[in-house]
């Protein structure tokens, strides 16, 4: 493990931290364009965070300390998750410490803290949001793991950077199983990041909201952290998708030039993903809450079918 790899790891986390709100801004911008609205600035999410950091925090009377530390824990887990995902290079020193299963576990931990924090004040909206979030979560989590399983069947490892490296090194071929899982992953990504068919990130006063319902009692710095963590989560998911399905162009060593190249390439890939996300959100309508499990069950089914198709290929 040379120091360049450590540098790579460090730069990666910094890039994730800095660029996550940018991705969100880009998605919002594309969405506005597609819907014939004048687009907000690309930097709008940063402004939002800055504004929140300049306000007094207001806590409910009966908010416990769990409520107060949850934003830090959620934000911290998202930062740690960013360190496990190969965004720029695949030789991350962190590879051996935590594999994709641990990554999914980390996301689950963040979700659990978010839901618990939402239940803490004891408002109607909070508990409702928590319940729905867990409902989405318990279907999305197995789907994500099945997606990762398919990739790990092809590469004999569960470490995400190694999966990406092996997939990129393999000969270019159409893998039907990866087609299935890519769709499944996209569906999970929409659901997990509170995007449109499952949740609507743009509305507040709606009985069908999930993610926003859990943040209602947060303000100022806590809210800023939560919003930033949500942006990071989207960024992380996008990068997991890239590592699994478009793994080409990751630097396989810590060479600074290749790293620079990888940053440019990542920006390009994310721009496409963001635009695609905006397109999906514009084209689809919000599902009723009780259709959301059907949506996710479909994703689960797709992932399972991908697994079966893969098994048919490798079976002796």
């Amino acid at each position: 493990m040379n120091w360049l790899n450590w540098l790579d790891q460090f730069i990666e986390v910094l890039v994730a931290l800095a660029a996550a709100p940018l991705l969100l801004g880009w998605v919002n911008m594309c969405r506005a364009w597609l819907q014939n609205r004048s687009a907000p600035s690309l930097l709008q999410p940063y402004r939002g965070i800055r504004k929140l950091l300049h306000k007094d925090a207001v806590l409910a009377h009966n908010a416990s300390s769990l409520f107060r530390i949850a934003p830090y824990i959620i934000f911290g887990t998202m930062v740690a998750a960013a360190a496990m995902i190969p965004m720029l290079g695949t030789r991350l020193p962190f590879t051996a410490a935590a594999d994709a299963i641990a990554l999914v576990g980390l996301f689950a931990a963040a979700r659990m803290f978010l839901s618990l924090a939402a239940m803490d004040v004891g408002t109607a909206f909070g508990t409702l949001g928590a319940r729905r979030e867990m409902m989405v979560g318990f279907l999305a989590e197995p789907t994500l793991l099945m997606v990762i399983f398919v990739a790990s069947l092809m590469t004999a490892t569960t470490a995400l950077p190694l999966i990406a490296e092996n997939l990129a090194a393999a000969q270019l071929a159409i893998h039907p199983s990866l087609l299935f899982t890519a769709v499944a992953f996209a569906m999970v990504m929409l659901a997990e990041n509170a995007r449109i068919p499952v949740d609507n990130p743009a509305t507040h006063l709606e009985l069908t909201m999930i993610h926003e319902a859990m943040l209602l009692e947060y303000s100022a710095r806590h809210l800023a952290l939560m919003e930033w963590a949500a942006a990071l989560k989207l960024f992380n998911y996008a990068c997991i998708g890239l590592a699994l399905f478009v793994p080409w162009g990751l630097a396989s060593n810590g060479d600074p030039i290749r790293l620079g190249l990888a940053i440019v390439l990542l920006a390009g890939k994310l721009a496409v993903i963001g635009a695609g996300l905006a397109l999906i959100e514009t084209l689809s309508a919000k599902l009723r809450v009780f259709r959301a499990p059907e949506f996710l069950a479909t994703a689960f089914l797709l992932a399972v079918l991908g697994l079966l198709v893969r098994l048919l290929q490798v079976a002796r």
Binding site: A57, L59, A60, A220
Partner: peptide
Amino acid sequence: RRTRRADPWDC
């Protein structure tokens, strides 16, 4: 900034 306590907002 300061942190103060208030009634829950709940929309």
